[in-house]
Simulated scan of single mutants.
Amino acid sequence: MIVIGCALALLFAVPIVAASGLGHARATAGAQQRLAGPIAVAPVAQSAAEPGRGSQSAPAPPASPRREVARAVVAAAEGAAAGTTELAVAVLDRETGELALGARGAEPYYTASLSKVVVAVDILDRRRLEGLAVADPDIALLRRSLGPSDDGAMNTLWSRFDGVGAVGRVSSRLGLSGTAAPRDPSQWGEVSVPAADTVKIWQHILDEMPPADRDLLVSAMDAAPPQAADGFNQAYGLLAPAVDGPGAPGAVAKQGWMCCFSGKYYMHSTGAVGPDRRFVVALLTRVPRAPGWEVSRQELTRIATAATQAMA
């Protein structure tokens, strides 16, 4: 039995099954890498005072951004996870270019509802690059699939826009290394994606898509209500008040939840955190089912909170 979106939803004989994601993952070694070297700060020239004028001190150069933060965020997230939790984490510092992966950062997990982002990116990219016809009702479905995480809207988009083919197209365009389509083409929640690829997808949205397309996706996810369309409480992880509430750094995120391969829950929280959305964070988890959904939500919130505190 697979729980899709809400913990009590059952799979029925429908063309597409909604889910929220996880995976029979292949373990791979963790890795850490940097995308960019140190930022060079040009010296500020000091010119001699002009005759008849008082000397003026040169303006101070802008402070260099603190480095090694992404690595610290990964360490904090992994340190907050319970021993029974299989956590995959990847963090990109968009200001310095530093990318850090946890021990499971390259391991594919079932996406659950994170596949909704993949399909939305594919639809907008094809509209721009290939002239794909996308009507206003399709955009409304896209918004509903991303904000309230409406599984019915995703079912329609998956069928109408070749969702199973979207996985390969997006992987090719973005150079994803571990993302794969589901074995059963009707099960969009069983798309596989590692945390490292999830970060690349978010980077594509924030830094490579045209502003209008980027703003469409970001605004749709930023409007996510605390209660999803299926009634599930999605105000956890990066969308918990400790991260996205008053006085907190703020985040825009897409959540995922699914049950029950191998007797486990799969809960994910991925998005961009902080001023100017400096940090892209992917938190993918597999957790024991027995404690229940609320315990799983609370733990992922602790993980996200620890990660966010390490950004300061």
Rank of each mutant, 00 (worst) to 15 (best):
L99Y: 02
V199R: 00
A77W: 01
D138M: 12
R26W: 15
I123P: 03
G250T: 04
A240F: 02
Q56G: 05
F161E: 03
A212T: 13
P275E: 14
L8G: 11
A19V: 09
A40T: 13
R126Q: 11
T179G: 06
V287F: 13
R289L: 15
G189T: 05
G245R: 07
P241L: 01
I205L: 15
A36R: 14
L11C: 04
G147V: 03
A307V: 06
L174E: 12
H24P: 08
W158R: 05
G178S: 14
V121F: 04
T198Y: 11
L283F: 13
L217F: 11
D276S: 11
S186F: 13
S20T: 03
P210I: 02
V199H: 04
G178C: 07
G271V: 01
D222N: 11
L101M: 11
V119Q: 11
T96R: 04
H204K: 06
L174F: 13
N155S: 13
T308N: 08
G97V: 01
G147P: 01
V252R: 08
D150C: 04
E107L: 05
H268S: 07
T28Y: 15
D93E: 12
E98K: 01
H204Q: 10
T305H: 08
A290D: 15
S55L: 09
G178V: 14
A220D: 04
A76K: 07
M1V: 03
T308C: 11
G102I: 01
R143S: 03
P61Q: 14
G237P: 00
T198R: 04
A106C: 13
M258T: 03
V164P: 09
D122N: 12
G178L: 10
S192C: 06
N155K: 08
L284C: 04
E130T: 03
R144V: 06
A90W: 00
P15V: 14
S219D: 15
A112V: 06
T156C: 01
D184C: 00
E50H: 05
R94V: 08
D93R: 06
D122G: 02
A140M: 06
R297I: 07
I39L: 15
G152M: 10
A13E: 11
Q227K: 12
Q46L: 13
A140D: 12
G30A: 14
R173C: 08
A70P: 06
A251R: 03
R278I: 12
D151Q: 09
G263I: 07
A7M: 08
G79W: 09
A100F: 12
A240W: 02
S145E: 09
S269F: 14
G23Q: 15
E86Y: 00
G79M: 10
I39G: 10
G274S: 00
A31P: 00
Q46M: 07
E68K: 05
F279S: 06
D184G: 00
S64I: 12
W257T: 02
R297F: 12
Q56H: 13
A224P: 00
A49Q: 09
R94D: 10
R297G: 09
V295C: 06
V17T: 07
L174K: 04
A304T: 00
P249M: 08
R126P: 01
E294M: 08
C259L: 00
A120H: 08
M258Y: 08
S269M: 07
A72G: 06
G52C: 12
R34L: 15
I123E: 12
L141S: 01
L157V: 07
A112E: 11
M154K: 01
